[in-house]
């Protein structure tokens, strides 16, 4: 009988009297460059083996690309935002409506999607100053649901039931398989760009100030941090980054329906990416994104109808077993490295 035991820094496998230890040595797998090369080779490899994997990879990249700004948002404002998908809706609908009405391509709709997200984020940014704790959670939770209702109330504009169709696609090479390959690379590029930007910000002095705000807002204010300014800047930037993913979704699928992204189920998946990856660790978001996208794909393929029940159960068990997330295994060994995580406030 094979016995496996997950210890703090190693996996111990026992078979009878024999024992193998696999030390989770971070020296190699912490090298971002190795992972970047693997991720860039992955689409080409799966292009020849199993093109369906590219689709899963795009999902994983996009989950990670939504979770990373959400991590920045959570750390920078010191509050848990439960409605990041609202900005996916704003970005997506802006791109979709402009593209359908004027026949604009993705490059033309992008600046307008960004602009609309900035405006929407600025309008709702006073929330991070006025509300905290449960009130903030409730308000942010309600925003996407209200937006979803609006798409049903005005079906002429948003086509709430069916969604908007006929959006100019992101790429059109004439071959669907090649399109997938290129879009796989675009999604990887977006994910890496977000990873680079957010990691740079969190490692800079502003990241340190955000971590201080995340830990204790009042104390941070009293040592001279202009908390309102930092919170609003973090909120607007992170929401805009999430909004860009809405633009990507609209042009990638050539259709955009609020009912796909605005309900709680989609939000739950993103929050799980954030938590399973490792309590708002940016690198953890990538790990969490890939983990959840591939787990979902495997379960849909092999579990069939039981998948909607088993998928959340597996994730909940993981949350219970690994409260610090997958990246927490690494952080435990290297606690000296300065990496802010979310601090759940009463």
């Amino acid at each position: 009988m094979v016995e496996t035991e997950l210890k703090r820094d190693r996996i111990v496998i026992r078979l009878g009297t024999k024992k193998w230890e696999w030390v989770l040595e971070p020296r190699y797998w912490r090298n971002t460059l190795i992972w970047a090369v693997i991720l860039f080779l992955f689409p080409t490899a799966s292009y020849f083996v199993s093109p369906g994997l590219i689709n899963t990879m795009i999902s994983a990249n996009i989950y990670a690309a939504i979770a990373m700004p959400l991590a920045l948002l959570t750390i920078g404002t010191g509050r848990m935002n439960f409605g990041p998908q609202f900005y996916i809706g704003v970005g997506g609908y802006t791109a979709a409506l402009l593209s359908i009405s004027y026949g604009w391509g993705p490059l033309l709709t992008l600046p307008f999607a960004i602009l609309m997200c900035i405006v929407a984020a600025l309008i709702f940014s006073p929330l991070v100053l006025m509300a905290r704790g449960l009130y903030y959670v409730l308000l942010t939770l309600l925003l996407p649901l209200v937006f979803l209702e609006v798409t049903f109330i005005y079906p002429d504009i948003f086509k709430g039931d069916t969604g908007l169709f006929g959006i100019v696609p992101l790429l059109d090479t004439g071959n669907a398989k090649t399109n997938f390959l290129y879009i796989g690379y675009i999604s990887t590029a977006i994910m890496f760009a977000y990873l680079w930007i957010i990691n740079k910000v969190l490692k800079s002095r502003y990241g340190l100030l955000m971590a201080a705000i995340n830990d204790d807002e009042d104390v941070a204010h009293s040592i001279g941090i202009n908390i309102n300014k930092i919170k609003i800047i973090a909120f607007v930037c992170a929401c805009t980054m999430i909004g860009i993913i809405g633009w990507f979704y609209a042009h990638y699928f050539s259709s955009f329906a609020g009912i796909t992204y605005l309900p709680l189920t989609f939000m739950l998946k993103i929050l799980l990416v954030l938590m399973i990856g490792g309590r708002a660790q940016v690198f953890g978001c990538v790990v969490g994104g890939y983990f959840i996208a591939f787990l979902e794909m495997l379960m849909i393929r092999f579990m069939g109808p039981i998948q909607p029940v088993l998928f959340p159960i597996i994730l909940l068990i993981l949350l219970f077993v690994l409260p610090e997330g997958l990246f927490g295994l690494y952080r435990k060994r290297r606690y000296r490295e300065y990496l802010p995580t979310i601090h759940v406030r009463r």
């Binding site: 830990d215 040592i223 601090h343």
Partner: peptide, 13 residues
């Protein structure tokens, strides 16, 4: 700041 090290706490200040 519970999640920051002693040095980074003073650094923020």
């Amino acid at each position: 700041f519970p999640e920051l090290t002693a040095l980074t706490s003073v650094l923020a200040s």
